[in-house]
């Protein structure tokens, strides 16, 4: 469940971004489209609790996250929100499996090794479980980024240009993976992108 009202963020008095209200009930997905520079990433970061809105409210799972203290917000984010980043970026000193375990550690989730293996197998990373992250290909990095976002079973998945650097085939795979997960877990999937290829997968679309 995700709901925003009269959300706005001011970088400077001259750069003020306002966003349309969003209301998503269980397992509803949303695609936010728009060219660069209109504040897509800002909106995503507001939804993820990485930025505090200048005005307006954000409710996730009936918690007003704009009212939470920094420490509670960190904990809430870890437990309820999974973020997939555009470029697969990880903790470089850790292996594939340890990156997942680090995420689970910080989000205080207890997930069995078998479940981790399942996720990695689904994403075609079973072979790479002990590899160093720098040895992965671009596609594999993107999939690992998804695995990390999903491994602790968040209620909201925020994806920032998850398909930008992928070919048609991989872009399709990634979106299907994310939608399938959202459907199974009754989670909300919010994707921001300028990639029109993936429009057909979403019922709700907002143009910024």
């Amino acid at each position: 469940m995700l709901q925003t009202k009269t959300l706005s963020y001011h970088y400077t008095p001259n750069v003020q971004l306002t966003f349309p209200d969003i209301t998503l009930s269980f397992h509803e997905n949303l695609l936010i489209l728009g060219p660069s520079g209109v504040g897509k990433t800002t909106l995503l970061h507001l939804l993820g609790g990485l930025l505090k809105p200048t005005a307006g409210t954000i409710n996730i799972q009936n918690v007003a996250i704009d009212k939470l203290s920094q420490k509670k917000l960190d904990a809430f984010r870890g437990k309820h929100i999974g973020i997939v980043f555009q470029k697969g970026t990880f903790i470089k000193s850790l292996s594939v499996i340890d990156n997942i375990k680090a995420k689970l550690f910080f989000s205080k989730a207890s997930v069995s090794d078998a479940e981790i293996k399942d996720i990695l197998t689904t994403l075609g990373l079973a072979e790479k479980i002990n590899s160093k992250v720098r040895e992965l290909s671009e596609g594999q990095k993107q999939r690992l980024s998804i695995a990390i976002a999903l491994c602790n079973k968040p209620d909201v998945i925020l994806a920032d240009e998850p398909t930008a650097s992928l070919d048609d085939e991989n872009a399709k795979n990634v979106i299907e993976l994310l939608s399938t997960y959202a459907k199974e877990k009754q989670a909300n999937l919010v994707v921001i992108t300028h990639d029109h290829r993936i429009k057909e997968y979403f019922a709700n679309t907002i143009m910024l």
């Binding site: 990485l50 910080f106 205080k108």
Partner: peptide
């Protein structure tokens, strides 16, 4: 990486 860990739920 530190920012990333913050998104994972790590506190300061």
């Amino acid at each position: 990486e530190i920012a990333l860990m913050r998104t994972y739920g790590a506190n300061r």
